[in-house]
């Protein structure tokens, strides 16, 4: 088809195959204030893994993570069920870093809040490589810019 896709940034939408590590839900707001700096968030996830609240290695079930100006959606590989839905306006920040286990895998931490902004949840996914993690961050950043531009 002659429809050109991709260059029109407002239609930015991308799909990535990731694995789900886990989530730490319903953190109180004062706790979320402590999780602003990237290293604090990484240490928090590390501690959760050491305490067994989060596994070190995700299940081997792959999922598809969609990033667009609507936010982040995670669906099963056959896209029959939507597993997680993070609206863009509830996404506070996204962080990606090497999981340190030496296999070049990157962890993707998504900090979301609730509409009343009283608490926050940390969602952790595993990407297959840092390149994939970087592209996810790029698309999300473009989606924030696009949402900001349309707010004006």
């Amino acid at each position: 088809s002659t429809k050109s896709s991709g260059n029109n940034s407002s239609e930015t939408c991308a799909e990535f195959r990731v694995k789900y590590v886990g989530a730490i839900e319903k953190l109180q707001f004062d706790m979320s204030k402590m999780l602003q700096e990237p290293l604090d968030l990484i240490n928090f996830i590390d501690a959760a893994q050491q305490d067994g609240k989060l596994p070190f290695v995700p299940g081997d079930k792959e999922m598809i993570l969609f990033v667009s100006k609507h936010g982040v959606k995670v669906a099963s590989l056959d896209q029959c069920d939507v597993l997680h839905r993070h609206p863009l306006y509830l996404i506070v920040r996204m962080l990606c870093y090497d999981d340190g286990l030496g296999a070049g895998k990157n962890l993707l931490a998504l900090k979301t809040t609730d509409p009343e902004q009283e608490g926050c949840t940390i969602w952790v996914y595993q990407c297959s490589s840092s390149e994939q993690a970087q592209s996810i961050c790029k698309v999300l950043s473009a989606s924030f810019d696009c949402a900001l531009a349309s707010d004006k």
Binding site: P38, D46, Y89, V92, L95, Y97, G100, L140, F144
Partner: peptide, 17 residues
């Protein structure tokens, strides 16, 4: 666990939160 490069994307709506 040593963490190398870290990339952060912040929603402008929550800058500083």
């Amino acid at each position: 666990i040593y963490k190398s490069a870290v990339t952060t994307v912040v929603n402008p709506k929550y800058e500083g939160k």
